[in-house]
């Protein structure tokens, strides 16, 4: 017997267009249903059947727009293409970008924390209007803690 193998995709949803802070907060459940929508639309019921059983949104942060999803290894490219073909999330246009793809959650966590640091450093540099640097520090601490708490 071989154990069940997964792929962990770290996705960044880059917001574009009118850059207003979203009033409606997106949840991981909504991301899951949006993903189902694109996969069914582009790959049909067969595609969703191959992917849907194992597709799982493990983490999403509405502040940094980072997301970690898990899919079975056999058809992860279908799920990835579904992510790429997504054009809007919860009514807001965005560019989904797969930052990292790994076989274990450990590597996904490491990549997520690294990228999270970069993102928050960039926010600090650009001087986000409603976030002071203290707030950003606490934000970094909470997001890192959240990512580290993820379990298989």
């Amino acid at each position: 017997m071989v154990r069940f193998k997964n792929r962990w995709l770290l996705i960044e949803f880059i917001p574009c267009g009118a850059a207003q802070p979203s009033q409606r907060s997106t949840t991981s459940k909504q991301i899951w249903s949006e993903l189902r929508g694109t996969v069914v639309h582009n790959f049909g019921e067969v595609g969703w059947g191959a992917v849907g059983g194992s597709l799982n949104v493990k983490y999403y942060s509405p502040v940094t727009n980072l997301c970690i999803i898990r899919v079975a290894r056999d058809h992860y490219r279908t799920a990835w293409a579904g992510v790429t073909l997504l054009t809007s999330l919860n009514g807001e246009t965005c560019i989904p970008r797969v930052v990292h793809c790994s076989g274990t959650i450990k590597q996904a966590q490491i990549a997520a924390i690294k990228y999270d640091r970069e993102l928050i450093a960039r926010m600090k540099e650009q001087g986000a209007p409603d976030l002071s640097s203290d707030k950003l520090d606490t934000l970094l601490a909470t997001t890192v803690a959240e990512i580290e708490a993820l379990q298989d």
């Binding site: 490219r77 990835w80 293409a81 790429t84 054009t87 560019i95 989904p96 970008r97 797969v98």
Partner: peptide, 17 residues
């Protein structure tokens, strides 16, 4: 349009499909 741009890795994955 901006929202139709994709990262190189994602384009590669589209290529495999």
């Amino acid at each position: 349009r901006v929202e139709h741009l994709r990262a190189p890795g994602d384009v590669m994955n589209l290529g495999t499909t």
